[in-house]
Structures are given as structure tokens and as C-alpha cells.
Amino acid sequence: MADTIILKVYRGDAEGGELHTYEVPKSPHMVVLDAIHHIQRNQEPSLACRWNCKAAKCGSCSAEINGMPRLMCKAQVDDYAGGEIIVTPMHTFPIIKDLVTDVSWNYRVSSKIPPLVPKPEYADKPFNLQQIDVDRVQEFRKCIECFLCQDVCHVLREHQRTDGFFGPRQMVKIASLEMHPMDNLNRREQLKNEGGVGFCNITKCCTEVCPEHIHITDNAIIPLKERVADDYFDPVQGLLRKIGIIKRERKQPLDSVPNEQTKIHRPV
């Protein structure tokens, strides 16, 4: 065969597994997902992986390549020229089979964050917003829910604190609402308590892996931490607010909107 590449791919499930070695013909600008598809079509039709767009737009094909969380459809084989390519499933989430993991936790957490509630004066009216008012929020809304940031974050990966921390993806989501000029819900209590923004110690690993280049730490998490700190821990601000020198925007509490309990079902 003219030009081939060697891939080691994890095959296994919750009981255990191992790396299998495959040889695949190389094509120009090939990505790792191309190689996985080639294996499925020609060698192992039962090799499990997720994908949809093949263009880095849907966030389905997340995996780890040589230990780094990446989208398989965006990882060029040439980046690893001469070296090994080892493809394993995301580590943080329970494995289902081969490269497929159970990411449903992310959807369950996300369902705790209520969508936008427009300010009363804009309810049912077109918004009047300048581009500069929305630039910041649009950065967060580029998120494709690949969950690579959740995968890399040590709070979830090493310490498994899924009970205490929503993770960087959901911080980005809350930031997109908290900084939306029209949102009328007070989201800070959720951030501080249930969301666990305090768990983040700003290692920036999440920002490094984000395929959408969202500045997760600098633009989302740090400003959110500051807002929570202002509200809960700054005695001067608290006093000034009390005597009315600083006027805080009055937003309605989170529990004023009904929580409709969407259920994310899983096969048993």
C-alpha cells in the first residue's frame, strides 16, 4: 500500500478493554474521523463513535487523541506525522462502548439553568440592541456542546465533583444569560451554590481545549466569579447598596420561574 497510517483505537466497554491497532490508507489532509470511518467501512463495522457534521460544527465527535481532548473531525492526521495516533474515549464520562461515552449528565445539569426571561418592558417586543451590546454574549453562544472542556476540567476529571460543580460549559451558558442585556433573572445565587463557580481555580485548561476558541476562563468564569464576589462577599459594596448609593439592578429570583422538569431518559 502506498501511504498508510497506523491508528491505535480503544475498543471496550465498562468492563474493560484495550487498544487495537489498525492500518489505514492515507489521503490528503485526512482527519482522524476519516480514518475511523475507514475502519468502520472496511474492517470493523461495529466500532462505535459519534459524529454528525464532519465540519467541527456539531460537537459530536469528541474523543482524546494522545490524551488530548479533541474533535476527531478537526484533528489532522498530519499533525501527528511520524508519531503515534492513539484514540481513546473522553475520560471524565462513563464509557458506553469504544469511543462513545455517557454524556447525559451534561444535559441534566443544563436543564437546571432556565432560559432567557426578557425584561418586562421588552416582553413580546423586538429587542433594540447594538452589536457591541451582544458581542460578548455571542462569543459564548458559539459553544457547540462538545463537552471537551468538561472532560479536561480537573474538578470533574480528577475529583469527580459532578455533585458540586456544573463545569466550564455550563459556566459559559450561565454567562451568556447573565450578560445578556435583556435577561431579567438573577442567576448569581445558582452560580454560587448549586453551580459551584467557587470550585474553579482558574487553571485555564478548559480554554485551551475549546474548539470554538471561547475564552472560557477570562471572559466567562472570571467575570462571573467577580459578580458573585460583589454580591456575597464585599462588605463595602454591600453597605453602599444597603444605603442606596449603589443601585443594583432588580432582577427576579430564579425560583420565580416554574421549573418544568425536563426528563432526559436513559436506556436501562
Binding site: 416582553a123 433594540n128 451568556s176
Partner: peptide, 14 residues
């Protein structure tokens, strides 16, 4: 937009 979509804007804010 009411549900939370954030479209690009014109100079008039539309």
C-alpha cells in the same frame, strides 16, 4: 429573540 437567540444587529439596533 424572546427565547434567547442573539442575532447580529444593524446600526439602528435591529
Amino acid at each position: 429573540e424572546q427565547y434567547g437567540a442573539v442575532f447580529d444587529r444593524t446600526p439602528e439596533g435591529k
